[in-house]
């Protein structure tokens, strides 16, 4: 019987002294309590309680293992969690995420409007870009960028097949870190473009029509009328992308850049404490993803202004 006792219902019940009397509908007319004096008995869910109990047992066992199994080496975890090396690596990871996101979405917005434009050439170029960068695995692309200096010794700006006005030394221009940011951003741009385009398409056409009928300048229509409304469907997807880019920075470890995952590998390569150091990385990833989710919540609330939901 204990398993079937449900939490008290929101409906003000008469003080039924026993469960037994509650099940028989008490027809005692008491105007002040339940409507027409009838006691409401909520539906009971015995199996739900069984499931809760089973899940709870498994969780407790897992937690017990985390605490008591010496293999986790929590002392090692604690020793490394906030060391200089790890903190610096976290900072590099955050920088990669920030720059990758900012540049990626900037390029993505341009691509989205190219795809939405009336010009077939711009549309095709954007389409081809998105097609290409969604097809190439990120890790392959990153290695390409890393080896850019091998392909192009110097970059120059000028007329194709004609004279050039400016030239840069590729190695100086594209350092390790910028190569990584560029790779992440170009990859991100392809996805961001589709997210932004989807968001813009989700805004009722009547909105830009109304804005056009009022003579509101074109850029202002986008910035003030269309994009803020598009943000509502862009944001959840964009947050997903940012979070996956944040974790995706661990791929950059193949380029020997000192981000979180690479640094952790270096440390456990030296001291052999693989599991606790993986836990250090995991804890940081979870912590920062949580922070991003909190930010997402508030940003979404800002853009929900004026909506009923």
């Amino acid at each position: 019987m204990a398993l079937t006792s449900d939490p008290p219902s929101a409906v003000p019940l008469t003080k039924a002294p026993e469960a037994a009397t509650a099940t028989t509908v008490a027809a005692v007319p008491r105007a002040s309590s339940a409507p027409a004096g009838l006691t409401v008995v909520p539906v009971r869910h015995p199996w739900r309680w069984v499931a809760v109990a089973a899940t709870a047992v498994l969780l407790v066992q897992f937690a017990h293992g985390l605490v008591t199994n010496p293999g986790w080496e929590w002392d090692v975890f604690a020793a490394f969690f906030t060391t200089e090396t790890i903190l610096q690596a976290v900072w590099v990871t955050l920088q990669l995420t920030f720059h990758g996101t900012a540049l990626g979405f900037a390029i993505g917005i341009v691509l989205a409007f190219m795809r939405l434009s009336a010009n077939p050439f711009l549309r095709s170029v954007a389409f081809a870009y998105i097609w290409a960068f969604r097809s190439i695995p990120l890790i392959v692309q990153l290695l390409f960028w890393f080896n850019l200096a091998y392909l192009y010794k110097e970059l120059s700006i000028g007329i194709p097949f004609g004279p050039s006005f400016l030239s840069f030394d590729t190695m100086g221009l594209v350092g390790e870190m910028s190569a990584a940011v560029l790779g992440l951003a170009l990859h991100q741009a392809a996805y961001a473009a589709e997210i932004v385009r989807g968001g813009v398409l989700a805004v009722d056409e009547g909105q830009s029509e109304a804005a056009a009928s009022l003579g509101i300048p074109r850029l202002r229509q986008l910035r003030r009328i269309v994009l803020p409304q598009a943000m509502r469907s862009i944001l959840p997807n964009a947050a997903n992308e940012i979070i996956s880019l944040f974790k995706g920075t661990s791929i950059v470890s193949v380029m020997a850049i000192g981000e979180l995952f690479y640094q952790v590998q270096v440390v456990y390569g030296r001291n052999g404490r693989v599991v606790p150091l993986l836990m250090v990385a995991t804890a940081w990833y979870v912590l920062l993803t949580t922070a991003l989710s909190v930010v997402q919540h508030y940003v979404e609330r800002h853009y929900a202004k004026g909506s009923a939901r």
Partner: peptide, 26 residues
């Protein structure tokens, strides 16, 4: 050009069947 058309439209008010108010603005 679009800019000039937009300017012309400021002299003509248009009221739509479905209002088309901007929902995110007061």
């Amino acid at each position: 050009r679009e800019r000039d058309i937009l300017k012309q439209r400021t002299r003509i008010g248009f009221v739509f069947q479905n209002f088309h108010l901007f929902p995110h603005l007061t």
